[in-house]
Design a protein around this nucleic acid. Structure first.
Length: 982
RNA sequence: GCCGAUGUGGCGAAAUGGCAGACGCAACGGACUUAAAAUCCGUUUGAGAGAAAUCUCAGUGCCGGUUCGAGUCCGGCCAUCGGCACCA
């Protein structure tokens, strides 16, 4: 045994943890020694490096799996135990997938631009780069100590010029594109034939009312304003028109909704995005106002046109100036002043009572030809629709309130179903008082009136979105500078050769207060040439996180934002890597050990076979990476297409899913028959083509913004031919937040924050990881419990002691209980039930129940002789959860019972054998009238007739059936017999 | 107000419409120990009956329904949490 300690000592001659182990109170097992040992061994051996196509160690036979965490903002406070919850889940998946023979991309990086670092710099004068570097180091230490199997060679930081060079490059791609309304796709601006390309660019400059936060000296996106205050700091925010960079995300609104359908995301998150985009179908209707001005309104209820008894314009609507009569000019001016003085908060807060002013003008209702008054009111928003509405008080709540407040006429035009009063009814019914459409049900009435309006040239069907264009500029220092200059009042892109454009050095990061960004202080930097100056704004924090998952595929590439081949491999799974020919017969080493169940299940090799034999476009078409847009490969085409355009074999036909040439994954139909490949996906989702990141785990707080922005950028890059999938994240899972022990949200304020490193110091990283997963379902919110950690730690110690025993001197050595013996039949049953349960639970991300099953295993083997093979199986199953402990025990076992190769990470994942799960006898529940009365053991082969006879003859059953008539006997195979009596 | 999620022992939780509470924590009892810790073995939803093994009844937020049988499915409420909130 001595050599064991000598070996450890030689590994860590100066390790403080080792010496502390000797002095401190005895640990349940020496995690403080073995965890650092394995962590440095993994580093040395580059064990978790995922080779890219082209690298010498790249094995084209392995299928790829891309599992991603939402990368953190490295704050000054470090991680608390809530952060690693999702990271632990993905790490288990990553390690599991590697054991199943996948080439796994599992990276980590830093979303390091952002306001807190800049705020800190303003307070302390310390450059944000310094604090950022410090914070990253702290985060990384914490993550490494937890034993995550990240490929650290792929680490990226958004503030690194080698990274943001490409963020800026992507901005230029967006700047140099427009969305062709015919194809609904992004195209190079050169394909635009109109007069003014600047009016259609996907990145454009506009004078827009923005959320100006004087305290922060910057503009904020709508999403960063919460209840009229800044999300960061909680400072007041006011509306103010400013010149800003905008990204035309609204051009993609339709696709961003439609293509959600293809994704394995939680239904709730999809709904959130849908609601955020807020699609509503309706019509634009033109009203003619006095002086010949047209007022166009948007309505989702054109069928109520006859009921429009007044109009309302948004106070900011420019038409107000032209329409207001002299008599009303003062009242209107007063009202507008009053409205603009209100912050957004006040405006919504005081929304209970409707306010407004008549502007003196009238318009004509195009249907009824009635003369109706025009008002302004702040309940009509300039930013939605046309900034004007027709007031239909009878069938719209807000209009009704307004009409009642100002005594405007109310005309019922929809007859509701019986029992409802027409006035105030907003549902569907039958049109009344509407000559053109009287008697028609609402949907038909809408169609008819739109047709009529169109014939008259007075309106048309339209769709509106709540989604606004993305306000993309910030008046900050610590962000990516725009690669743009201004010359003669016009913007221009700088040449790509000048990227990266690095922010100038500054001593003072404070906002200038005038709305001019801090970059204005760097006079020399700002002066681009004699005639041109640089753009002073910087990009928002979202920019860097919009594409980091792409950079991870090829982080060192200096010639492209991501190499084509790397992108195709990791995001789509390129066809060349999926052919059967390329697949060696036995990709996983050591698959032939007899007792360790069967070799790697066939899924690895059967997938490519199925793909290459499919006659359809899936296997034959190259990825659409050419710059020429291929409509058939767009998600839009997929969504709108009816029948599949190309026959791709029986699987696709029966599924009804259209082939998806842009996505080169095998379709789920083809994946399905693969043995051992358990599909956690829903049936509907299984019909969707797959592509992008295979599993993306993060918090719900990014449900809308980050995910929507990333999808938008991805689609632009896809349309321009730079990417091979139209969606970035195929499968998304949200982890629930972890509360403090007091049940409150973890925060400094409550003093309930727990540092992972403190937990690890007491219980070890493996216990920490297992407890994070054992707490409950991943998606659920749950409170932390230190005694819970202790329980899990006890479980791991029991595993340790199955293999190890202490000698007289208090040294751990291989336990004599471990032997090469056949497990008993009962033990075999536990072993194989555990393989089955753990495998299925990992696939379903149900880690808590997987751990529970392994606890059952350990309970069953505690106190008995330990059959070597059973033990090895347990270590493999537990390895993704507790990698250090299992690696150490595996190695120790291998010294006494050598196998080749001996690394636990080179073993095949165990496969359960059904024969060990088959029972001779089965317990049957006997019920009378649905209540359990007895349980009996019967031979598995018992027939229904036999079961019925046994049940009816059973004493306990007869006690409850005596004197009654048996009406029915229900038999559920292998489960129960239910006797129904009256 | 609208949308979504969740409600099960003292606590975290588990349960393809078929034995409610697996597994873990806490508590209690026992073994080992001079003792403690650690470890190992038990008990642990409530009420009632019994000397006891056991047995009966009730029980998954509330009310109702479907079913031989409901934590699970359906309808109606209540509570907590999250999101949206004058989006025409």
């Amino acid at each position: 045994m001595d050599f064991f300690w000598n070996f450890l000592l030689s590994c860590f001659p100066d390790s403080p943890t080792f010496s502390s182990f000797m002095s401190e109170r005895r640990k349940p097992y020496p995690f403080d020694v073995i965890e650092p040992k394995w962590q440095s061994l993994w580093d040395e051996r580059r064990l978790f490096h995922a080779p890219n196509p082209g690298e010498p160690s790249f094995d084209p036979a392995l299928p790829k799996y891309y599992v991603l965490d939402m990368f953190p903002y490295p704050s000054g406070t470090g991680l608390h135990v809530g952060h690693p919850e999702g990271y632990t889940a993905t790490d288990i998946i990553a390690r599991y997938k590697r054991l199943r023979g996948f080439n796994v991309l599992h990276p980590m990086g830093w979303d390091a631009f952002g306001l807190p670092a800049e705020q800190y710099a303003i307070r302390t004068g310390q450059h944000p780069e310094i604090t950022t570097r410090k914070n990253i180091a702290r985060f990384k230490t914490q993550l490494k100590r937890i034993g995550f199997s990240y490929d650290w060679e792929r680490e990226i930081t958004t503030t690194d010029p080698a990274y943001f060079r490409w963020t800026q490059w992507i901005f230029l791609q967006i700047y140099n594109s427009w969305c062709n309304p015919e194809t609904r796709r992004a195209e190079p601006i050169s394909s635009y034939t109109g007069e003014d390309p600047d009016s259609v660019r996907l990145a454009y400059v506009a004078e827009v009312p923005v959320n100006w936060c004087p305290e922060l000296g910057t503009v904020l996106a709508n999403e960063e304003v919460i209840d009229g205050k800044s999300e960061v700091g909680g400072f007041p925010v006011v509306r103010r028109p400013m010149r800003q960079w905008m990204l035309r995300i609204t051009a993609f609104a339709e696709r961003l909704i439609d293509e959600l359908e293809l994704l394995d995301w939680p239904a709730g998150i999809k709904l959130l995005q849908q609601n955020w985009i807020g699609k509503s179908e309706g019509a634009e209707v033109q009203f003619v106002a006095g002086g010949g001005y047209d007022i166009i309104v948007f309505t989702t209820r054109p069928d109520t046109l006859y009921g429009a008894t007044y109009m309302v314009l948004a106070p900011e609507n420019p038409l107000v100036d032209r329409l207001t009569t002299d008599a009303q000019r003062k009242a209107v001016a007063d009202y507008r002043a009053q409205v603009s003085a209100k912050s957004d908060l006040e405006r919504t807060d005081l929304a209970k009572e409707k306010t407004g002013v008549f502007i003196g003008a009238y318009a004509t209702n195009p249907a009824s030809n009635e003369r109706i008054p025009i008002w302004i009111a702040d309940y009509v928003l300039m930013g939605y629709g046309t900034g004007a509405i027709m007031g239909v008080p009878a069938h719209d709540e807000r209009d009704l309130e307004f009409a009642r407040a100002f005594a405007l006429p109310i005309l019922d035009v929809v007859q509701p179903p019986e029992g409802e009063t027409p006035t105030g009814y907003t549902g569907e019914g039958v049109s009344i008082n509407s000559p053109l459409i009287d008697g028609l049900p609402t949907p038909e009435a809408k169609r008819r009136i739109i047709t009529w309006l169109a014939e008259q040239g007075l309106g048309r069907r339209t769709i509106n979105y709540k989604l606004r264009d993305w306000l993309f500029s910030r008046q900050r220092y610590w962000g990516e500078p725009f690669p743009v200059i201004w010359r003669d009042g016009k913007h221009e892109a700088i040449p790509e050769s000048e990227l990266p454009l690095v922010p100038p050095p500054l001593d003072d990061f404070k906002p200038t207060g005038s709305g001019e960004p801090p970059l204005a202080r760097a006079r020399d930097w700002v002066r681009y040439s004699e005639e041109a100056t640089r753009e002073l704004n910087t990009m928002p924090q979202w920019a860097g996180s919009c594409w980091y998952y792409l950079r991870f595929c090829d982080p060192g590439n200096s010639g492209r934002f991501v190499g084509k081949e790397a992108e195709r491999y990791w995001m789509a799974g390129a066809p060349g890597f999926w052919t059967a020919a390329a697949m060696p017969p036995d990709t996983v080493p050591a698959a032939s050990k007899p007792a360790l169940v069967s070799p790697e299940p066939a899924h690895v090799s059967s997938e490519p076979t199925l793909v290459s034999s499919a006659p359809g476009p899936v296997s034959s078409r190259p990825a659409p990476v050419s710059s020429e847009p291929a409509p058939a490969s767009s998600g839009a085409a997929l969504v709108s297409s009816g029948p599949a355009p190309v026959s791709s074999g029986p699987a696709s036909i029966s599924s009804g899913a259209a082939p998806f040439p842009g996505n080169l994954h095998p379709s789920p139909q083809e994946r399905h028959p693969i043995p051992g490949d358990l599909h956690p996906f829903s049936e509907a989702a299984a019909l969707c083509p797959r592509g992008g990141v295979d599993l993306y785990v993060g918090g719900t707080e990014h449900a809308v913004l980050h995910l929507l922005y990333a999808r938008f950028w991805h689609k632009v890059l896809f349309d321009l031919g730079h990417l091979s999938t139209s969606e970035p994240f195929q499968r998304l899972v949200n982890q629930g937040i972890i509360l403090g022990e007091d049940g409150r949200k973890m925060s400094k304020r409550w003093g309930n924050v727990i540092d992972p490193l403190d937990v690890i110091a007491d219980y070890g990283a493996d216990a920490f990881r297992c407890y994070e997963m054992f707490m409950g379902p991943l998606e659920q919110m749950k409170p932390w419990s230190m005694t819970g950690v202790e329980g899990v730690s006890r479980f791991l110690a029991r595993v340790w002691r199955l293999v190890m025993a202490e000698n007289q001197a208090g040294e751990w050595m291989l336990s004599p209980a471990v032997a090469e013996v056949e497990p008993t039949r009962a033990q075999q049953k536990v072993v194989h039930a555990t393989i089955k349960k753990v495998t299925g639970d990992i696939e379903a991300l149900s880690f808590n129940t997987a751990i529970a099953q392994m606890m059952i295993f350990v309970n069953a083997f505690t106190g008995s002789a330990i059959p070597l093979q059973a033990m090895r199986t347990l270590l493999l199953l537990l390895n993704p959860f507790a990698p250090h402990l299992t690696s150490e025990l595996w190695e120790t076992l291998g010294r006494r019972f050598p196998i080749t190769p001996n690394e636990i990470t080179s073993q095949p994942w165990p496969q359960e054998q059904a024969e060990f799960l088959i029972e001779d006898e089965v317990e049957i529940v006997l019920q009378v009238n649905g209540k359990v009365r007895d349980r009996i053991l019967v031979p598995i082969a018992a027939s229904n007739a036999e079961l019925e006879a046994v049940a009816l003859a059973n004493d306990r059953v007869r006690a409850f059936t005596a004197g009654k008539t048996v009406r029915k006997v229900i038999i559920v195979e292998k489960k129960l017999v239910s006797v129904v009596v009256n």
